[in-house]
Structure formats: C-alpha cells, structure tokens
Design a binder for these strands. Sequence first.
DNA 1: GGAGTGTAGTTACAGATGAAACTACACTGG
DNA 2: CCAGTGTAGTTTCATCTGTAACTACACTCC
Lengths: 149, 149
Amino acid sequence: MTPTGEVIEAWRLLLEAHRRLANQLDHELTAEHGLGLDWYDVLFQLNQAGGRLRMHELSEATMFSRTDCTRLVARMVEAGLVERQKAAEDGRGVYAVLAPAGKSALREAAGTHLDGIQRLFGEHLEHREIDAIRSGLARIVAAAGNGPA
Amino acid sequence: MTPTGEVIEAWRLLLEAHRRLANQLDHELTAEHGLGLDWYDVLFQLNQAGGRLRMHELSEATMFSRTDCTRLVARMVEAGLVERQKAAEDGRGVYAVLAPAGKSALREAAGTHLDGIQRLFGEHLEHREIDAIRSGLARIVAAAGNGPA
DNA sequence: GGAGTGTAGTTACAGATGAAACTACACTGG
DNA sequence: CCAGTGTAGTTTCATCTGTAACTACACTCC
C-alpha cells in the first residue's frame, strides 16, 4: 500500500512543476495580453466547443467551480470577450458565448501561451517521456473521474 | 516554437491530474485527520529538515509565500503542532519548530496520505512511466528554477 | 560609529475562493 | 394540475491569498 520512493518523488515533482509553470505562464500571459490563465482557459474551452457552452459545461471543461464560472463570465462580459445567452430550450439555463473580441483575444494570446508551453515544458522532454506522461496521466485522470469518493 | 499536439496534451493532462489528485488528497487528509494538505506539508518539511526551519526556508521548501507561512505557523502554534523560537544567531530570525504533537500528527497522517498517493497515482503507472515522469519533470523544474524571469 | 543598503518577518489591504444557502425553472407521479 | 424532488445558476459568507507597505535587525564602508 505504501508507495515506493520513486512514486513519491514523481508526485512531488508533479506538484512543483505544476506550480512553477502555471505561475510563469500566467505571468507571461498577463504581461503580454492582459489576460489571466483563467480567462484564457475560458476562451479556449468555448472555442473548442464551437463557440458556446452552458455554464455547467464550462465549469466542467475548465475545472473551475460553478461559482467561479459565474464571476469569470460576468467580468469577461464586462470586457466584451464573452456574451450571455438565455437558453431557449431550458428556462434555467444560460449559455456563455464566445464574442468576436474574445475570439481575436484568444488568437493573439495563443501564440504567447503555446510558446511558453513549448519553452518551459515541451522543450525539456524527450519524446518517450512525453508519451509516458500522456499515457500514465490519462489513466490517472480517468480513474480519478470515476473514483469511489 | 509551437509545441506539438502531444506536448499540449501532456501539459493539459498534468494540469488536470494535479487538480483532481490534490483536491482528493486534501479532502481525505482533512476528513480523517483534520489536517489540510498545507499543514501536512509544513509538518513534513519541518520533519525532513530535522525538526526546525527558519521561516524563509520553510517558505521555500513548501512553496508557500512568506505571508502564508507566517499565518500557517501562527495557526499551527495555536493548535499546538508547532512552536516558534527566536533565532539566537540572528535577531531578525524566527524558527518554526516541530512540536511533539506535530510529530505524532504527522506520523498518523502520513499513512493516509501515502496510501492516497499510491492508490490515486502510483498504482496506475508502469515503472517506465514513473521513471520518465521523474527524469522529465526534474529537468523542467531545474530549468524553471533558474529561468530568466 | 553611524548612514546607507539589504534581509527577515509581519501586517494591512484588496481581491479571489469554495461551500452552502437561495432562487428559478423542470420533471415526475398521483 | 400541483406537490415533491431534482437541476441550473447566482449570491452570500467566511476564509484564504498575494502584493505592497512596514518594522526590526544585520552588514558594509567611510
């Protein structure tokens, strides 16, 4: 039941790598485009989904709480990057819709961000390591999704 | 400069795995021992260091801000898990010292936590994947440590 | 030996955060 | 059709968080 030292080390490195890179990427994005990583993620997910998502779908896709999504979207509406649409088919529902300004903001920021990912992350990894990370973490994420708790 | 799709996928999986597992591990620790992951980390680092650390060393080891360390230690002193000692050799300095109650709390919580790491993380990884994660992320962390920013 | 610069730690402040309460609408069975 | 139960989203609240100012002490160099 107790993990080996290698497992613990791997987990600690994952924690540290995550914190360092997330901070760095967030700073870069904020400095160059006035966009936090959170806003980027919202724009990215909306774009991936074809331009709009129900609030709870956005919440799941971005891994932000529903509370956060409400506030995030509110501010991004202020900034003109996103619009809100009442769902016609469900009186309770609301769509977050990618606005044109949001789409162009995403396009601009994507360059910086992808660059950062390559420079801070991809560049240091051998191909077999990338594959190992993908396959291993995919299994972990899948297992955590169904988990008993 | 633009990362491959595999690199981006690896990065996204790292983000998702981190968030899911950190949440889950924190909940388990809180539920079973009334200890947050943050407190655990403080106790763990103090123990690793032989029982005491200067505040700024604790900050570096745990990756919490100095502000957080001040507050974290204050609360843990309240709870009797940690003690504060003025540094004799430096009038500005303060040591956070692992109290006996902290040591036993750590010992109890460690079982739960290591178990969780194995169950949620280690168990799903093949040995070669663990090695790849360790070597790759170690290089990344080292590079980020010196980074220009 | 004391002015200037640097470091350790705390505090004040402003903003972010999630859990839980709350509102509004949807569905189901009688 | 309407009570009961469930889901979508927002708001409230209590707490946490980092940045920047602040206090206190240390070191250096004249």
